[in-house]
Design a protein around this nucleic acid. Structure first.
Lengths: 343, 343
DNA sequence: GGCTTTCATGTTACCGGTAACATTTTCACG
DNA sequence: CGTGAAAATGTTACCGGTAACATGAAAGCC
């Protein structure tokens, strides 16, 4: 049986609200959908109507509620990227490129700071998925099984970056960290270094590089002393890191640094102690930051093409948005050793 | 007259969709609102029901659609911060602090990159407002009249930061750039510098500092040669900047650098030319980045408490969210001169 | 001129949640 | 054991848009 109709509920917002489609429509004397079309598909309207509607929109200072639009259309025109730290200069080029590419397609990029800590990543991912972006770009690969499952269940295109795995959640653009560690080791080995050491950030990817470096020398029965610094590593940690190494292992002849910042700090410390680089000590960095070439001596470093990562990731997402599936779901952008004077 | 009822429209999404509140509710045998309460106000439910619902949620991998929730409740639990560049180390501490504070209150921070270019800021702001965040943090003050009007019309709490104005859109946490330029000039003047120069990024705030610096010396009839570099300024621009200055004005005795990066580059260039710092040339930076103290010589710099800016901005927004209005709508966090060996 | 197309606009339902109020159940207590 | 208050759950409407289909007006065509 029909219940008696409840009395009209009072308006939820007592104060003046921001204008909506309906307000504009009423003012112009058309329906909501016409106003919607004026904004989204203007060539579907007659020039006269279009002009009237746009004028009213302008007059009222109306800003479309994208929450409502996205909910209805199931498209948010929003891509979310998660980075470990917004300060990490490494990812800047990537994000810059992503943002530029997305902009061309009318998409917006928002960046979330995940931290280097895995625990928080899960919570953040949940919140991100909840906002139903049209794509998610992750720095590094996701390790929590639950997070992977949720990402898959959400059916949102995902690009993992800056790392490599044979089983990505969806798509991937990255490179092999172990390959970098090995390349650095080979490079130093060929230049006669027999007593290398490592100064490394404590994040997972840096550890992969360090482990591969150590493994290379271990195969030659050479142990590699190492110190770790909490990411993101400031230059000062490179100074103190080298100081620690020299105290415990005064005869080291080379340092593989897990970031250019650390390498720069090591250079400063070496200079302060009168150790000549590269003669007595070879120093090699990672990241090839722009300041490396201005260091004294100029820094040898491992270069990653972060811009390419961003460009490719964005292209993959845009392809998906257009309904295509990208030719390759996994792209390895590789790396290069930039040889300068420090090693 | 009632039109004939249209035939039931076909489902909009043919493929399997992600689960919704209704799905969970049906599975457990309760209504949507009960499931909603399980997530938002769990102590309103009986323990038995709560457990059943949560189990079903977990089983299904359900992720709440925050678009729908925000639309309905008019609260998004989202704060958006716009920074000129995510690479700018200056804003990192601010964002870090904002993120931490917000997290404690269950809010999420997303960062948008606005660029140093004003034109784009308007478009980005429009998109941001459209997502109806519960607060907006801006780096710098907004200058476009239209953007200011839209921000006001949207009734979203806004905090402008890193600058000062007597007429903020809403709230403000910052400091005076001209005061900094003047302080730097006084500092150098007192140390005997009579032929200063400037290397500055080309963004608006840096120009304010440079202009005040120049004005101080102009009052003493001393012209100040200056070079500009496009923001964000890498260290290399400091090198080339000093080189340019020395070529055109070989007798300068001090440089006020608009960023620590530039100052570091200037130090490198001076050293390369055998110019002794601070004896022949005093160098002063801005930002007091962590690497400044490891420079050779350690860098004198103007320190801004970016962390405090972030903390206060977050507190202001959280106060607003709680329905209070903060005691002070404008906070000047000031600055300090950190004296080291370079000047 | 009548008929088919195309163009411009409207109607209805729905996206997936939450607010506000209503109803039912449970529990304490005289 | 009845009664009133508190606790648990339900009902209805609505947030502000867009999809899909419907309809009326203008235009093309033989």
């Amino acid at each position: 049986m029909k219940k008696p109709r409840p009395k009209p509920p009072k308006s939820r917002t007592a104060v003046a609200k921001t204008p909506t489609l309906a307000d504009i429509a009423a003012e112009v004397g058309v329906t909501k959908i016409t106003v919607s079309r004026a904004l989204n598909t203007p060539d579907q309207l007659s020039p006269a109507t279009l002009e009237k509607v746009l004028a009213a929109i302008k007059r009222s200072g109306y800003t479309p509620n994208l929450l409502a639009g996205s909910l209805s259309s199931n498209r948010s025109k929003l891509i979310v990227a998660l980075v470990p730290s917004i300060s990490g200069a490494m990812f800047t080029a990537t994000m810059q490129n992503v943002a530029e590419h997305l902009q061309q397609h009318g998409y917006q990029l928002l960046i979330g700071q995940a931290g280097y800590d895995d625990a928080r990543e899960d919570a953040l991912l949940e919140a991100v998925i909840g906002r139903r972006p049209d794509g998610i770009i992750l720095t590094g690969i996701v390790h929590s099984a639950q997070a992977r499952q949720k990402l898959r269940a959400a059916r949102i295109p995902v690009v993992e970056t800056w790392d490599l795995t044979s089983r990505p959640i969806d798509m991937l653009v990255g490179f092999s960290h172990p390959a970098i560690g090995k390349a650095a080791a080979e490079y130093l080995w060929q230049r006669g270094c027999r007593r290398p050491a490592i100064i490394s950030p404590d994040d997972r990817r840096a550890r992969l590089r360090a482990a591969a470096f150590t493994a290379f020398y271990a195969a030659k029965k050479i142990p590699v002393p190492a110190v770790e610094a909490p990411a993101p590593t400031p230059m000062g940690d490179g100074r103190s890191g080298l100081a620690t190494l020299l105290r415990d292992h005064p005869r080291i002849d080379s340092v593989f640094c897990g970031s250019d910042n650390l390498a720069l700090g090591a250079l400063v410390e070496a200079k302060a102690r009168g150790i000549s680089v590269p003669k007595q000590l070879k120093v090699i960095g990672y990241g090839d930051q722009s300041y490396g070439k201005d260091a004294d001596p100029p820094l040898t470093s491992l270069r990653i093409d972060g811009a390419a990562i961003g460009r490719i990731a964005a292209e993959m997402l845009m392809a998906r948005a257009a309904g295509q599936s990208p030719k390759k779901k996994v792209v390895d952008v590789g790396f290069a050793i930039v040889e300068r004077a420090s090693a």
